[in-house]
C-alpha cells in the first residue's frame, strides 16, 4: 500500500505505472474476448482500411481489425515476458546467491556455465533452443528465460560477494543465525533494489525478444496475433498500409518505456536511504 502510494507520488513512476496498467487492462480485455471485433474474423470487404471510427487502427490484408489483434497480442507478449523473466530471475538469483555465498569450485562451475550462455547473442541462443524443441508459447518462455538467467546470476553474485563480508553478516554469525536466515534476511533483502531494477529492465528486453522471435516466425504461430508477428506481416505492405507497422511498433516501444520508468521509480522508493525524498 505504502509502495503504491509512493509510486503514485513519483513523477515518472506515475507515468510508467499508468502505461503498464493500461497495457494490463488491454491485455485482460483481449484475453477474455472483450475486443471491438473478433481478432481472427476476416472482414473481406474492409481489407487494408485506414484507421476509422469502425476500425480504430485500421485493418490488415485479410480484413482483420488491428486494434483487436493488438489487444490480444499484448496479452500474449506479456504472458511470455512475465513468465520468462519470472523464471529467469528465480533461477538466476538462486545460482548467483549460492555461487557468491559458497564461493570456491561451486562458484566457478556456476558462473562459467553462465558465461557459456552469455557468450551467445540473445536471439541466436533463443533460436537455437526453439530449433531444438520446436516453436510454441512454452518453448518461448524457456528460451527467453535461458537468455536472461545469466544476467540475473551476475547481478546477484556481485553484491552477494560484498554483502557477505559486511559486518552485519558477521554480527549475525555471532548470534548463531542459521545460513538460511542470513541468506534471506541479510542478503536477499539487500538485493531487492538491484533485482527490481533488473526485473523491470529484463521485462522490457523480454518483450523485445519475444517480438523478435515472433517476427522471425518462431514465437507465436499464426493465426494467433502477436506484436512481432503483426510487424512481420505488415513489412511488405509498408507503402500501402503504414498503420499496420506503426501501431504494433509504437505499442512495443511504449511498453518498454513504461517498464523502464516504473523500474526507476521502484528503485527510488525501495531504497530506504532515498525514502524521505519521495515519500
Amino acid at each position: 500500500m505504502r509502495i503504491l502510494r509512493a509510486i503514485a507520488a513519483h513523477p515518472t513512476g506515475r507515468i510508467g505505472a499508468g502505461i503498464i496498467l493500461l497495457y494490463l487492462l488491454l491485455a485482460l480485455c483481449g484475453t477474455i474476448g472483450f475486443t471491438p471485433h473478433n481478432p481472427l474474423q476476416q472482414f473481406r470487404i474492409d481489407r487494408l482500411q485506414g484507421p476509422s471510427a469502425t476500425y480504430l487502427m485500421g485493418t490488415d490484408l485479410f480484413g482483420r481489425d488491428t486494434a483487436s489483434r493488438l489487444m490480444v497480442g499484448i496479452g500474449q507478449s506479456f504472458l511470455i515476458a512475465f513468465a520468462s523473466v519470472g523464471l529467469a530471475s528465480l533461477v538466476g538469483t538462486i545460482i548467483g546467491l549460492l555461487a557468491g555465498w559458497w564461493g570456491g569450485w561451486l562458484d566457478g562451475a556456476f558462473m562459467r556455465s553462465m558465461d557459456v550462455l552469455l557468450a551467445f547473442p540473445a536471439i541466436l541462443l533463443a533460436l537455437l533452443i526453439i530449433a531444438i524443441v520446436g516453436p510454441g508459447t512454452f518453448t518461448s518462455v524457456v528460451a527467453i528465460a535461458a537468455v536472461y538467467t545469466p544476467i540475473f546470476a551476475r547481478v546477484v553474485r556481485g553484491p552477494t560477494l560484498s554483502l557477505k563480508r559486511r559486518e552485519f553478516v558477521d554480527a549475525a554469525r555471532t548470534f548463531g543465525s542459521s545460513e538460511r536466515y542470513i541468506l534471506t534476511r541479510h542478503l536477499l533483502l539487500n538485493l531487492v533494489a538491484p533485482l527490481t531494477v533488473q526485473v523491470t529492465l529484463a521485462l522490457a528486453w523480454a518483450l523485445l525478444t519475444e517480438a523478435g522471435l515472433s517476427f522471425l516466425g518462431l514465437g507465436t504461430q499464426p493465426p494467433a496475433p502477436s506484436l512481432g508477428l503483426m510487424m512481420s506481416e505488415a513489412r511488405n505492405l509498408m507503402q500501402q498500409a503504414p498503420w499496420l507497422l506503426v501501431f504494433p511498433g509504437l505499442t512495443i516501444m511504449l511498453g518498454i518505456l513504461g517498464f523502464n520508468l516504473f523500474g526507476d521509480a521502484l528503485r527510488d522508493i525501495l531504497d530506504p536511504r532515498t525514502q524521505r525524498r519521495t515519500a
Binding site: 559486518e167 552485519f168 558477521d170 554480527a171 534476511r185 541479510h186 539487500n190 531487492v192 530506504p272
Partner: peptide
C-alpha cells in the same frame, strides 16, 4: 553503520 542491516 556497517554492523546493522540497513533494510531491517
Amino acid at each position: 553503520f556497517a554492523s546493522l542491516n540497513p533494510r531491517l
